[in-house]
């Protein structure tokens, strides 16, 4: 049964690509989210406009449309940038993995920036003042005082986003990346058993999301060490 008519190894390889894509997009998304949150909380009005515009626009668009724009538009955009900035005119090809990572990270970042912004403003201002009074620089204050607490507060929301991200990786199959959905479609084409194989893919996704939700519960518990809760 694990053999799946000889397609077991292929599905396993596809699952690995799905995981790589999820993690790569997560890194891009977390960085964009932090940058977006910083822009939203900036003292400069143009930066705030960029930060707010980014999350408002991306959250109003279908994920699939964003993925298509990145994949089919990436070559155009990069070539236009390269020729205006560096005078480089050769053809630039963008891989499905790179386009998928940027597109999914871009979407994740838009939602995460809202979470981070909420978490940052929920931390009492007195803490940053105390850190400054102890002689910490602005950077030290951010990395030692603010960020660890932002992590704890934003973690449940980030967990939800992570699950959505994991399921959204299936969209990248449409632009040709050999991840779980794509290799499943390949197996379907060979065996003419669509139900069997799409159901198998569904079970693998269920396994992945279940493991992720267990891992997130553990992380949440760990991040909340030392936080007092009301006795129930």
């Amino acid at each position: 049964m694990i053999d799946l008519q000889g397609f077991g190894a292929l599905l396993f390889a596809g699952t690995q690509v799905t995981l790589q894509l999820t993690l790569a997009a997560l890194v891009v998304g977390l960085i964009l989210g932090l940058l977006g949150a910083t822009a939203k909380l900036s003292e400069h009005a143009p930066l705030r406009l960029v930060g707010n515009g980014y999350s408002t626009l991306v959250r109003g668009l279908p994920e699939f449309l964003v993925v298509l724009t990145f994949y089919f538009g990436a070559t155009d955009i990069l070539m236009a940038l390269a020729s205006t900035l560096f005078g480089y005119d050769a053809y630039i090809e963008v891989s499905a993995f790179a386009a998928g990572t940027t597109a999914l990270g871009f979407i994740f970042g838009a939602y995460a920036s809202e979470l981070f912004r909420g978490a940052i403003i929920s931390i009492h201002g007195g803490q940053a003042e105390a850190a400054r009074a102890l002689g910490m620089s602005k950077r030290q204050t951010f990395f030692r005082i603010t960020l660890p607490q932002v992590w704890r507060i934003a973690l449940p929301g980030l967990g939800n986003l992570f699950m959505i991200l994991m399921k959204d990786t299936a969209l990248i199959s449409v632009v040709g990346l050999e991840e779980l959905m794509r290799v499943t479609a390949f197996a379907v084409g060979r065996t003419k058993e669509p139900f069997t194989f799409y159901l198998t893919a569904a079970v693998i996704y269920l396994l992945l999301t279940s493991i992720a939700s267990l891992g997130l519960r553990y992380l949440e518990k760990r991040a909340a060490l030392g936080v007092r809760e009301a006795l129930s």
Partner: peptide, 23 residues
Amino acid sequence: IFFFRGTPLLVQLFLVYYGLGQF
């Protein structure tokens, strides 16, 4: 709920559109 929230919509769509015709 566990099934429909834990799997991508694309898989569900393909299960119905391509999958059911297997039987």
